[in-house]
Design a binder for these strands. Structure first.
Lengths: 265, 265
DNA sequence: ATATGTGAAGGGTTTCACAGCC
DNA sequence: GGCTGTGAAACCCTTCACATAT
């Protein structure tokens, strides 16, 4: 079936749990800030606060990398920066291509956080001939006809997809065929990739929807009848709840509230 | 300490696990696509494939919402769209402000996925007076002096921060003081918020770093000496590994490889 | 016959709490 | 005394497998 796989089996990662890997960049960012302020050492407590996690988790995480701290003292900032960078593979240079230079692609091209972490924007690629040659963030846009050539010549293994959803899968297929094995997908689509290719996705609308879920919950709990009534009123302008096909009208059990009063007969 | 909390205790969510909530938008997207193609029903198997998850997980997820399927048949597409929308709170309108109208803010302002999911861009806010009044994606940018007024007048409870990292915390503080209780943060910083405020973060550089980790692992496994040697060569130009303070040189135990050959004396 | 809904098993992650070391 | 490193417990999430319903 080859449906887009985002996380690998996790046993692979030389024993470092996936959850830990996902937090290493956070620690690295906090450590880099300390390093810039010439702070020599940190305790797990301080670093955890700076990274927004709790200290027990941080210590567990670091224990997977090795014993890099000193009991009674803490962690050496510079040393940890190096160790985490190495573990993440950031001590080498990663050329990256960005495909789809719309607003988002342009924002990504100009994002400072890349260069400072070993990522180098090797090329910007867009299908629009009018864009070809135009510099974006100082880098000239290349036409997508040349995608394969660019990937191969620069030895690119990481691709960023910032195209419309409709073309994301075909862009993905071409990237993979040309040798890309890691993809960061901003298009709101599920990408199918062969085994051995990693896909991570960022979906702006999904993040907002998760926030909305919790927001709704808050409004409901405040026993704040005013806010509640307002929310209900809005509902009237929205999607009408369709009845389930062949509903007999009896045995549909919602967890408690079931379908609200807005539901028509 | 009040460090930014991203996930709430999870027991709160009327019993719906956080992991399930995070997938509901995915299901919704797949269902919406089916709905547009006028597909009346789907099986858990089909829908799971379209959403990029496995069917057992999907059925478990749906079971938290209620019994919305029909055994032997599947799920009614329209009905599920409505139920999930309602659960996520998307049947009501959520005004959103975007603060920081650079490349990224502009991309977000023009992102189609918002409007179609019940999110309405109530205002674009930027601190640069030169931006004030300029329309971005058809919406005039307002000056940040008016932030509080805008939030209060429009009853905004969700804010998106797309500013530089340096000002993100103070923008966050002002948003929260003005009544915002959910924040989507694109700035690469940990935000501190009081209890009751949700923060979700999207960090582009973090996603790439996670990919780089796995990418590095792949290169190492292929017994591909060529790629390996190239990687090592690059390392020379990168961060020099500092020794730990007070290192006695004996008892630092890396999990296996320890510090590579590049490490100086 | 077919596909959902769900207890139970299995893995992974977080938290606790303290032994071990400086 | 202070802080790391880590077994053990608790928790959450995923997967299995089958009873249950149409």
């Amino acid at each position: 079936m080859a449906t887009g796989r985002t996380h690998r089996p996790a046993t692979r990662s030389r024993g470092i749990p996936e959850a830990t890997v996902a937090r290493l960049p956070l620690y690295l960012r906090a450590l880099t800030a300390l390093s810039e302020r010439s702070v020599p050492t940190v305790s797990s407590e301080e670093l955890a606060a700076a990274a927004g996690v709790n200290s027990a988790k941080l210590r567990k995480d670091f224990s997977y990398l090795g014993s890099y701290g000193t009991r009674g003292v803490g962690y050496d900032v510079e040393y940890l920066v190096y160790q985490i960078s190495r573990e993440l593979g950031l001590t080498q240079d990663w050329p990256v291509v960005i495909v789809g230079i719309g607003n988002l692609g342009a924002a990504l091209a100009g994002y400072g956080g890349f260069a400072s972490r070993g990522f180098r924007v090797a090329a910007l690629i867009d299908a629009d001939p009018a864009m070809t040659g135009k510099p974006v963030a100082g880098i000239p846009v290349q036409h997508s006809d040349d995608l394969e050539k660019i990937i191969e010549e620069d030895g690119v293994s990481i691709g960023v997809i910032a195209t419309p959803a409709g073309v994301a899968q075909q862009v993905c297929d071409r990237l993979v065929a040309a040798g890309v094995t890691s993809i960061l997908n901003f298009a709101p689509t599920v990408l199918s990739v062969p085994d051995g290719v990693d896909v991570r996705k960022v979906d702006l609308s999904i993040e907002l929807q998760i926030l909305a879920f919790h927001e709704q919950r808050k409004a409901g709990e405040e026993s704040n009848a005013e806010a509640d009534a307002a929310a209900e009123a809005e509902t009237a302008t929205a999607v009408a709840p369709p009845a389930p096909r062949g509903a007999t009208g009896g045995n549909r059990k919602g967890p408690d509230g079931d379908v609200p009063a807005v539901m028509p007969a």
